[in-house]
Design a protein around this nucleic acid. Sequence first.
DNA 1: CTGAAAGCGCTTACAG
DNA 2: CTGAAAGCGCTTACAG
Lengths: 358, 358
Amino acid sequence: MADRTGHRIVPETTRRTDRFPGTRYGNRPTMKDVAARAGVGLKTVSRVVNGEPGVTPETERRVQEAIEALGFRRNDSARVLRKGRTASIGLVLEDLADPFYGPLSRAVEEVARAHGALLINGSSAEDADREQELVLALCARRVDGLVVIPAGDDHRYLEPEIKAGVATVFVDRPAGHIDADVVVSDNFGGARDGVRHLIAHGHRRIGFIGDMPRIHTAAERLRGYRTAMEDAGIPVADAWMSLGVTDPERVRRAAREMLSGPEPVTAIFTGNNRVTVTVIRVLAEHARPVALVGFDDIELADLLQPGVTVVAQDAAALGRTAAERLFRQLDGTLIAPERIELPTRLITRGSGELPPAD
Amino acid sequence: MADRTGHRIVPETTRRTDRFPGTRYGNRPTMKDVAARAGVGLKTVSRVVNGEPGVTPETERRVQEAIEALGFRRNDSARVLRKGRTASIGLVLEDLADPFYGPLSRAVEEVARAHGALLINGSSAEDADREQELVLALCARRVDGLVVIPAGDDHRYLEPEIKAGVATVFVDRPAGHIDADVVVSDNFGGARDGVRHLIAHGHRRIGFIGDMPRIHTAAERLRGYRTAMEDAGIPVADAWMSLGVTDPERVRRAAREMLSGPEPVTAIFTGNNRVTVTVIRVLAEHARPVALVGFDDIELADLLQPGVTVVAQDAAALGRTAAERLFRQLDGTLIAPERIELPTRLITRGSGELPPAD
DNA sequence: CTGAAAGCGCTTACAG
DNA sequence: CTGAAAGCGCTTACAG
């Protein structure tokens, strides 16, 4: 796959041979080395490095000189061991490559940065075991806190960690079987409003295609769909609902089934961004126009013909809110876990306003 | 912004009050505590925790019991200090929220995971100072290696770190003023082919809108454009080229200018995904049809009218290749820095095949 | 203003 | 099979 070019050669010795002379961090100088070279005590070096007062300008100069000559950079891992806080937090999400999680992750990072902390990212790939493995690895590294988008539905394994002081906030989906902070979108209300919108435009046979029902957001959005239908007095046929993995094959089949038969649906509500994208493709090939409202906004949705009406959630706000909450836990400001729900927004662009093609 | 609901109350003491009794990691038990409780030596606990041989089943049982009773989890920060490798790598990119970097980041994460390492992510926000700050913070944490998408153009500040043993690979753009591994797409060739494609469809007045010229990829793509034009014997008017920040305002203005006047361009080549998206919007409002080829693929490009022809690069392959290279550095397998170039792919979907509207 | 000693929680090297 | 001692690179608490 790789097309290699430009093999510039450098002297081997500058490159790898002297790289790990001992077994330790290369051959990095330590404060001890700096102290020896500057002819001062260890603590004096520590003072200079940390900008603590009580060092003569002359002494400081000598130390600085030694630092530069040796290329010393403080080992924060050692510092952290002694201080008890690692100034890092962990973020476990489903898939960093999903356009929904990018902005969320970036928002968490910004808050962490404002608090002087680094962000360790991990993808669970929607696998509960992998989530747990990642979370516990982060705890072993003694991250100060954890922002988790749960893949699993039982988080009791985190109880000892939380009790031991690991700040924890769940985002996008609630934690299972433990009492913890959680920040979610109004999945139920958003879906209900989206379906109501379709009903208001004259639809009665409305399909729902969503993610696996064990995923909380999927279940909530389905509940929103059912509630909207029920409120309108429309009985829902089983054939109108399809939940399962979001891979294009499955979704495509589900959409086609709803759209065929003697009484096809005239509108579809899609349960998340990936489902929406696939259904748009199916509808593009479909003979009659079919109305569509999707959960999650997607890029270029306004440029399609028709534009795609969506129920948008604010991924960045989810991340920001969760991270801020995390650092408030670390401040010791918070008392009891809370559930914070962020509103969604219906954005009409055309596809949701199509009348039934009956 | 937050709509707060469900204030479940839990007893304060289980929550925060006993959270940091000392100053240290909560009140986590250590191996010493486990040893005391099990009535064995510290080293025996270490053996059990690490699955080393030479422990009686009975002793092991006692230790395991103590571990569970105490809720012990090994402090990997301490372990790492002693071992000299942190089993973590850093990834510095421009913006985690950009859809181009999500898949790249995920690919790096997967490779890291396969090597038992965690991934620390940081966004430079296209700011050279912030890039350096992040990179050096990661070095201070003693990450084993660094994957960097450069924002700045001078990386001599990394020289001492590399010499000290920090494995380093640059991706997407080359490093400045230092000799290091770099993995890039064929930006020049891809752009040249894209522009040739437009020329082959009869265009002569072709515009180029790209990112700031100081960004290597932008410069390379511009070079590709110029080469294609020159090869075809088409003199390029200054008014046809616009480089600058990719914010929609600037791009919109640039596109409109090229499209107005007595001799407007009949085709536009866009220098990256964000520029493409804005230009698509401009063209949608434009009277005459204008051909378009964009660098970077974008989601739903195939569903627009017309579909958007693009020069696609493989973000995941960039990340994967760079990370694999990084771990080969850490293995000690590699000798000299290399430049690896990944091919791009022209995907025709309609917009690039429109004839000139003359 | 300066520094020696002890300790953070582990692993390494060695001795019984 | 088991464990006491030393050490990783820092900071803390204390003494001069």
